[in-house]
Write a protein that binds this DNA or RNA. Structure first.
Ligand SMILES: [Zn+2]
Ligand SMILES: [Zn+2]
Ligand SMILES: [Zn+2]
Ligand SMILES: [Zn+2]
Lengths: 166, 166
DNA sequence: TTATGTTATGTTATATAATAACATGTTGGA
DNA sequence: TCCAACATGTTATTATATAACATAACATAA
């Protein structure tokens, strides 16, 4: 099964890009949002977000803790989990359940239902908007009030797919 | 956001149903499949599946272990995880990542991409087929070879939705 | 300014989920 | 009968996440 997938974010681990600009873009978005909603963008919160967006790859809480430690921050588990809770709640970061890990949002400031495509060969992950695919259109039985959804698609990205037609 | 969702399985925790018949239906399916593929449907495997399908609710590995213990089976963690691996691999059971738990498949013997709707009030879960919604149709950029997907939809079921129009 | 409430950061200990490594039993052919 | 493959069993450990409690930083009202 092959599918064309929408990728209209600024930067991702799938694409070479100027991460200076990319990083600045997302940081600006976050600063603006926190400003407008009187949320405190503390050094720790900045740091964790910066760690996550560095190479656009999902990181587990304990990986983040290790980096925090190396870079001079406190590093007991609740430190990471609390900051991650904040970042997830405010929409700057998403949790990828299938990997027990966290990734910086690629559509910050833009209302969206996130979904993820995960290459199981190179471990890169891209966030996509799921408006196209969601909610599931159907013709029967059950009215269900949807609040949230978790969509994680596993497969092989073009770069890793040797059998692909160019 | 409200959506009509397809529910063409035999029995689920959302519906009153004759579970005798239901249980027999799924057990037969599983027996037939194992027979045809020379897989061993051992007492332990039967038991774990029966525990899972009892009330069609997702159970964590350690909940399953507790039941196994009460009912006279061995109950160290690998016991459950190995049987669950088997049942998941053969498609009789699915793992719900968002809940760290396992649920009996509602479409056994029928090729499908599973998806789940989870009521966060009553904790009931229904499996739906995701053909309608998946793969995501789109118009751009990235060819991605899809192998597997995890779709878990969280919300409020009709029974729990007080504000619903009848 | 001090007092006070609130939010953020910090610690230790613990709960929960999953796997590694290895031992024993069972079963079905060569 | 012997062997190979598979299933079940044990103990110990790793990985992930939270509880409970203590202190610090910060705002703002008296
Ligand atoms: Zn970047
Ligand atoms: Zn996002
Ligand atoms: Zn039933
Ligand atoms: Zn299924």
């Amino acid at each position: 099964m092959k599918t064309k997938i929408n990728v209209n974010y600024i930067g991702s681990s799938f694409d070479r890009h100027n991460h200076e600009i990319c990083n600045e873009h997302y940081t600006n978005k976050m600063e603006k949002y926190c400003d407008e909603n009187s949320l405190k963008l503390t050094p720790l919160r900045r740091k964790v977000f910066e760690i996550l967006i560095r190479d656009h790859k999902p990181l587990g809480a304990y990986q983040i803790l290790a980096i925090l430690k190396k870079e001079g921050f406190a590093s007991s588990p609740p430190i990471a989990y609390r900051v991650l809770d904040f970042l997830v709640e405010k929409g700057f970061v998403h949790k990828i359940q299938g990997l027990n890990s966290f990734i910086a949002c690629s559509f910050a400031g833009c209302e969206h239902l996130p979904a993820f495509i995960i290459c199981r060969k190179c471990d890169n992950v891209a966030e996509i908007k799921s408006e196209n695919t969601f909610p599931p259109a159907s013709d029967t039985a059950l009215d269900f009030k949807i609040e949230e959804a978790m969509i994680e698609i596993l497969g092989i990205c073009p770069a890793c797919d040797v059998s692909r037609v160019i």
